[in-house]
Amino acid sequence: MSEDSGAPSEDSELVDRANTAFYEAMERGDLEALSALWLGEGDDGAEDVTPSCVHPGWPVLTGRGEVLRSYALIMANTEYIQFFLTDVAIAVAGPTALVTCTENILSGAPAEEGSDLGPLVGQLVVATNVFRRTDGGWKLWSHHASPVLAETDQDESDEPPA
């Protein structure tokens, strides 16, 4: 974790905890805990913002209901998911915080016949999470995740020699 000013502040520590709680709720498939982490109509500081989310390959989802429905759908269709976060950077500016990170994701599809777990798939995604300070703590305002296109040996051989 890092912050623009160098030493971590109390706010950046709280944002880091909220960010970690977001990913842990996803790993557990806990929609109730995940919902509590998103800005809601009753949250102080949420009057002038609308939650939004972009999952890799999805269009922009706007509004708390649409965002939470997307997570319910993902959780219902994901047997296993684990996030290993790297390159986490946190910047706090007044009531808003920005977290950027790399999501190293390991996920499993539904189990195949005769198996406890379906095939595991690894994926690398970069994410930006925007948080808003409320009376109830730091809440997610926006999540935007984009896949990282890794270079393959084929890509390297297509380049002309130096």
Rank of each mutant, 00 (worst) to 15 (best):
S12I: 03
Y23F: 15
E13I: 06
A25G: 07
A21N: 14
A21R: 13
E13K: 14
S35T: 14
R28S: 09
F22C: 00
A33N: 03
E27W: 06
T20K: 14
A21D: 15
L14C: 07
E32Y: 01
D30P: 01
E10Q: 13
E10N: 08
A33E: 12
F22G: 03
E10H: 10
S12W: 03
L39S: 02
E13V: 04
L37D: 02
G29Q: 03
Y23L: 12
V15M: 06
L37N: 05
M26D: 07
N19Q: 07
A33G: 05
L14F: 10
M26R: 10
Y23R: 02
D16K: 13
F22W: 15
L37I: 00
T20P: 03
A25W: 09
A36H: 05
A18Y: 08
L37G: 02
Y23N: 10
R17Q: 15
N19W: 04
W38D: 00
A21E: 14
L31T: 06
A25F: 12
L39R: 03
D11K: 07
W38F: 12
E27S: 15
L37K: 02
L34S: 01
W38Y: 11
M26E: 12
R28D: 14
L37P: 00
E10A: 15
T20N: 11
E27M: 14
S35C: 02
A36S: 14
A33R: 09
E13Y: 11
A33S: 13
R17K: 12
E32L: 09
L34Q: 01
G29R: 01
V15I: 10
E27C: 11
F22P: 00
S35N: 04
D30Y: 07
T20Q: 13
D11T: 08
D30N: 12
L31M: 04
A25R: 08
L14Y: 07
E13H: 13
L39I: 11
R17D: 15
E27H: 08
L37V: 04
S12V: 04
E10W: 10
R28W: 06
A33V: 01
Y23C: 04
E13S: 12
